[in-house]
């Protein structure tokens, strides 16, 4: 389904130090720093797999997701998703994927959620029958009945996330990218979101790629974990591979970060 081979990506960012003098200096001159976001990344994911993609902030998680969803063009390497090169034919590619950015909403703030859904129907040109079936199913499984009539601004974070996930699946994508889907949610919402994702994977064979900082998400959802740090794949294995040391996931992961000296 997904293959990435020897993918590299680097950015230039402007640098500035704090302080009055520096602020004055930067009026005239600016320093740039090159950041290697991805450095020879290779992995492949099968159809219907659920994969946890983890690593500290700035490790290259979001760059990977951006490349796979066609937002970003890599400097080097080859990428295939479902037989397509994501960044070559964006529109054909994104028809088949769903993306949930945990920290950014795609719902319209001031109109009922159902209106946002209707707009998405138009955007993805979803046929009426398919839209109705999907909406029914998602409403049922995500318990959206009560929520669809209220504007997004009146929903709690958990309710909103359920709607967000529903919104990303209206067009029956084959691949679902979830970028920190449980961030900031309370315990009950987290559980229901996890359950739903699991179900979705079972029912529709949707391939799921999940980035998160929450190790319990990983434990609950995925067997396979890809671990990235400083732009390199550090580990590609099962939950058990990571766990071998101790019982507590957070500690194990923290230990891992330290051993690779990436948490600097």
């Amino acid at each position: 389904m997904i293959t990435m081979e020897h993918v590299c990506k680097s950015y230039k960012i402007a640098k500035r130090n704090a302080g009055f003098g520096e602020a004055c200096k930067s009026l005239f001159h600016r320093k740039y720093e090159e950041i290697q976001a991805l450095n020879d990344v290779t992995f492949s994911i099968l159809e219907g797999e659920m994969v946890g993609y983890i690593g500290p902030n700035g490790a290259g998680k979001s760059s990977t997701i951006k490349i796979l969803s066609g937002i970003l063009t890599p400097d080097k390497g080859t990428v295939f998703v479902d037989g397509r090169i994501p960044y070559k034919n964006r529109i054909a590619h994104v028809r088949e994927i769903g993306v949930v950015f945990g920290q950014r909403s795609q719902l319209w703030w001031d109109v009922p959620v159902i209106d946002s859904f209707e707009l998405l129907k138009d955007i993805y040109s979803i046929p009426d029958s398919m839209y109705r079936t999907n909406l029914e199913e998602l409403t049922e499984r995500l318990q959206l009945q009560e929520l669809l009539r209220s504007p997004a601004r009146q929903l709690s974070l958990g309710q909103r996330m359920r709607c967000e996930i529903g919104a990303s699946l209206l067009h029956s994508p084959k691949i679902l990218f979830l970028d920190e889907p449980t961030i900031g949610l309370d315990a009950v919402s987290k559980l229901s979101v996890r359950d739903f994702i699991k179900q979705q994977n079972k029912l529709h064979k949707t391939t799921v790629i999940l980035t998160t900082h929450d190790m319990q998400d990983i434990e609950a959802l995925t067997r396979r974990i890809i671990h990235i740090g400083k732009g390199r794949i550090l580990m590609d294995g099962t939950l058990e591979d990571i766990r071998q040391g101790g019982e507590n996931m957070d500690e194990t992961i923290a230990e891992l970060y330290r051993s690779y000296d990436i948490y600097t």
């Binding site: 066609g70 937002i71 529109i91 028809r95 993306v99 950015f101 950014r104 795609q106 955007i123 993805y124």
Partner: peptide, 18 residues
């Protein structure tokens, strides 16, 4: 600045229209 253009790019419509 808010990173919302990413959302535009993951939708199968012309970016200008969106």
């Amino acid at each position: 600045r808010r990173g919302e253009f990413d959302r535009v790019l993951v939708r199968p419509r012309s970016a200008v229209l969106q």
